[in-house]
């Protein structure tokens, strides 16, 4: 058990966690017997190709899915009350366009998010927090006044999701592929904001991505996933310079890098 000593319990602790979907012949093991622990203030990246189970694992951490087998705890306790879990553990998702309800203004949706807080802020306080969140991602609040999701670009929408996090100030952030739908030149920007969340607010961050190059930049540790299993973990330098698993080697080889041989015509 993780909480038997005086040391604080890890943020996330997983022991032989398995999550399956369907049953009988159609049984799919999305997450297959994974064990790990994530400490306070760490940035951990979960890297793998599509269908490797990384997003399912992220949703287990978020409390949107419950594991079928194994032990999974958040700060030493199983996730039972999702509302209070979401008060501390929040998320940004992959597709910034489909993340917001197109029928409500962005500002009202950012304010709506504050409802999850244990202590409901007053109206003035809520406005102030939303403004601060927007300012943290370099957006002038009045620029989005009265705007609806479809009026902004993908990069701006992704920043709105981050503004929501800056306004909520959760203890843990699960970032599920926040960079995969935005332009290459905006990705660095999003990584900068993740670093800022860690440095300024001391947030623990789980960064889910298929791009090991991005993970390499921001992480303290990398988990490489393949077919539901964590096949390798370690510091970014260990994993990228001396990969042990063939799947890690494959992930590294598959990225088209400017200075490296790739596919030849």
């Amino acid at each position: 058990m993780p909480n038997n000593s005086s040391a604080p319990a890890p943020v996330f602790y997983a022991k032989n966690v398995t999550k399956t979907f369907g049953h009988g012949k159609t049984l799919v093991k999305a997450v297959d017997d994974v064990s790990f622990s994530i400490a306070d203030g760490e940035i951990v990246s979960i890297v793998g190709g599509s269908g490797c189970g990384k997003s399912v694992l992220a949703k287990v951490m978020l409390g949107l899915y419950k594991q079928n087998q194994g032990e999974f705890t958040y700060r030493g306790k199983a996730i039972t009350d999702t509302r209070s879990h979401w008060n501390e553990v929040q998320s940004v998702f992959q597709d910034p366009f489909s993340c917001f309800n197109q029928f409500f203004s962005i500002r009202s949706q950012l304010k709506d998010a504050l409802n999850i807080l244990k202590v409901k802020p007053s109206k003035a306080e809520a406005d102030a927090r939303v403004d601060a969140g927007l300012m943290a991602v370099n957006i002038t609040p009045k620029d989005i006044e009265g705007k609806y999701p479809f009026e902004l670009s993908g990069g701006q929408m992704q920043r709105m999701l981050l503004a929501r996090i800056f306004a909520l100030r959760p203890k843990v952030l699960i970032a599920d592929e926040p960079t995969s739908m935005v332009d290459a030149c905006v990705r660095a920007n999003i990584l900068d904001y993740l670093m800022k969340l860690k440095v300024e607010l001391g947030m623990t961050i789980v960064f889910v991505t298929h791009d090991i190059g991005l993970a390499y930049y921001v992480s303290d540790r990398l988990f490489i996933m393949h077919e539901g299993k964590i096949v390798e973990s370690g510091t970014p330098d260990e994993v990228t310079q001396h990969p042990q698993s063939p799947h890690t080697v494959q992930l590294l080889e598959d990225i088209p890098e400017i200075h490296k041989e790739w596919l030849k015509r």
Binding site: A184, A188, G213, Y216, T240, L252, I255, E257
Partner: peptide, 22 residues
């Protein structure tokens, strides 16, 4: 600027700070 904003996992690249275009 576009080239400056690219990220990669090549050795020694971690210290290079990618610059996004404001």
């Amino acid at each position: 600027a576009l080239m400056g904003s690219m990220l990669s996992a090549e050795p020694g690249q971690k210290s290079r700070k990618p610059v996004s275009i404001e």
